[in-house]
Each structure stands twice: as C-alpha cells, then as structure tokens.
C-alpha cells in the first residue's frame, strides 16, 4: 500500500515547441523564463509524454515508443537521464497525482 501518491510529471505551462526536422531537433521556448532550448528527438519524445501522467507510466510509454525503431537504442537509464535534464532546465515539473498543468505545450 503506497504511503504517498505517485509523482506525476507535466511539461512547464506555456511551453512552445517547434520541430526543426532538418536539424533533427525540436526547439522549446519557455516564455516564463525567456529561455530557448534545443532537444534531440529522444528528449523531445520524453517531453511530449509528460502530460501529467505518473513518472512510471511515462517511462513505460517511452519504452513502448522506442520499441522497433531502427538504429541504436538508448542505453539503460536513458529515460531517467533525459527526464532529469528536462527537470534541470525547468521544462518539466513534478507534482503529486491529481494536480494538473494549466497549459500543455503547443
């Protein structure tokens, strides 16, 4: 029986995403901090999955999304490292279950 509700992860409110496929990246603008970031497709995928779901559900969906893709697969722990990078940059935030983000990335 869990003592605490699971941590959920959401993208920061107001985040603007613009794919730049010719560079193999996505630009993420955080209007609150006025910061621009570049995400490779793996980090971009993690960010798009951060829609308020529990961390574990995001990790499972991430693994499902990568299954069957050609080329090199990420090393074990890639999801945790990727999510930690996004958290450090302020692009995602962790909150208790039930709290929903005010705005999803667009």
């Amino acid at each position: 029986m869990p003592s605490f509700p699971p941590d959920c992860v959401s993208a920061s409110p107001g985040l603007r995403l613009r794919p730049v496929p010719e560079l193999g990246a996505c630009l993420a603008y955080d209007p609150v901090r006025a910061r621009l970031h570049t995400l490779n497709p793996v980090s971009w995928l993690i960010l798009t999955l951060c829609d308020g779901r529990p961390r574990q559900a995001i990790a499972e969906e991430f693994a499902r999304s990568l299954r069957g893709l050609p080329g090199t697969q990420p090393e074990p722990g890639a999801f945790s490292r990727g999510l930690a990078q996004l958290e450090a940059l302020g692009l995602v935030a962790t909150h208790p279950s039930g709290a929903t983000p005010k705005e999803t990335p667009r």
Binding site: N40, V42, Q73, E75, A78
Partner: peptide
Amino acid sequence: PRELLARLGAGEPSATEI
C-alpha cells in the same frame, strides 16, 4: 518525435539551452 526517431534512430537524450 517518433517519426523523427524512425528516420534518425534513437540515442542518448539531449536537451540543452541555447
């Protein structure tokens, strides 16, 4: 992102501030 990953392949995540 999945379409891009299908084209470019997956790898280590990378997110950096410009």
